[in-house]
Simulated assay, not measured.
Amino acid sequence: MMRTTLKLKMMTGSLMLLVLFLIGWQWGPAALGIPEFVLPRLSSTFNEAIRMLNSENLMMHAGVTALEVVAGFVMGSALGVTIGVALGLSPTTETVLSPYILALQIAPKVAFAPLFVMWMGYTVYPKIVVAVLIVFFPVMINVLGAVRAVDPDMVNLVRAMCGNRWQVFRLVEFPSAMQALFAGLRIASTLAIIGVTVGELVGGDKGLGFLLVYGEGQGNTAMVFVSIVALTIIGILAYAAVVWLEKRALHYLPRASMRTV
């Protein structure tokens, strides 16, 4: 009962903050003397969203961006898990590959985006590849650390029961890495939006990033705000999907360790 009441109070407080933010957005610019072309009111942004739905194919562009985000997130996460496990199980492999993986992570992804557009054209593929590069590293690092931190006593127990290498991985190492994996997936779900948006900003004729650049070129600040809000909504949905999956996959863990941010 107390937990339900606490959750209700937290939700109420969060909704109140949202209401205050929307009120400030609607009447704050006029009160501060900020012109519409600099910071449009909430009502102007809403009207622009309606116009974009009717004449700018907003839903189509949002769908393209969402598809790119999902594809980049899934492929980047799968690559991160695979390489993270491989490096975690083999210190020699980590020693050989770590400098190159680190160099790839340090190199600015924005610098790669024009190259991918030149190589693959104005398609969805450059955006997906940029998202994969951004998503890959946090997932890989989390999985690598978790595999390395497995309790050796549990590994020795499975081996004492005549377990082979695959059984040690399946019964001990991978389950132990699941919580760290989902922590990385949470980060990756938000970074996937950044990767796709960067790709669409550099070169694209579809997607919310394209609409953002188009609105900037037209001097339509409200259009830019609508694109940003739509990107934010996609990011929130992606994060919520990871949290939902985490709760289903890690239902056996204590609630204290499953608490979301």
Rank of each mutant, 00 (worst) to 15 (best):
M10F: 03
V96D: 00
A183C: 13
T260I: 15
T232R: 00
V168T: 15
G63F: 14
P40H: 11
P40A: 09
I106M: 07
I34F: 10
A113M: 01
N220I: 07
A113T: 14
L157Y: 12
N57W: 04
I23S: 10
L133P: 02
P35G: 06
V117L: 06
G28L: 08
M60N: 09
G76F: 00
V117G: 07
A103K: 00
N156I: 12
I128F: 03
A107W: 08
G33D: 08
E216L: 12
L39W: 10
F137G: 08
A66Y: 13
T5E: 10
T93S: 05
I233N: 04
G209S: 11
K7L: 09
V117K: 10
V168L: 09
R170K: 13
E216K: 14
A177Y: 08
M75K: 00
A30S: 12
G121Q: 03
T82C: 10
L211A: 07
V96C: 01
G88R: 05
H61P: 00
P35A: 15
L201M: 15
F174V: 12
R3S: 12
L115G: 07
T45S: 08
V261E: 14
A238E: 06
R159N: 03
T221V: 15
G215Q: 02
V38C: 02
P138H: 10
F116Q: 01
Y252S: 14
A131S: 15
V81E: 06
I233Q: 02
M2I: 11
L39K: 00
T93Q: 03
V74C: 09
L171W: 11
A160D: 13
M2N: 13
V130M: 01
I234L: 14
K206C: 01
P91E: 04
E68W: 05
T93N: 02
T65A: 02
W27Q: 09
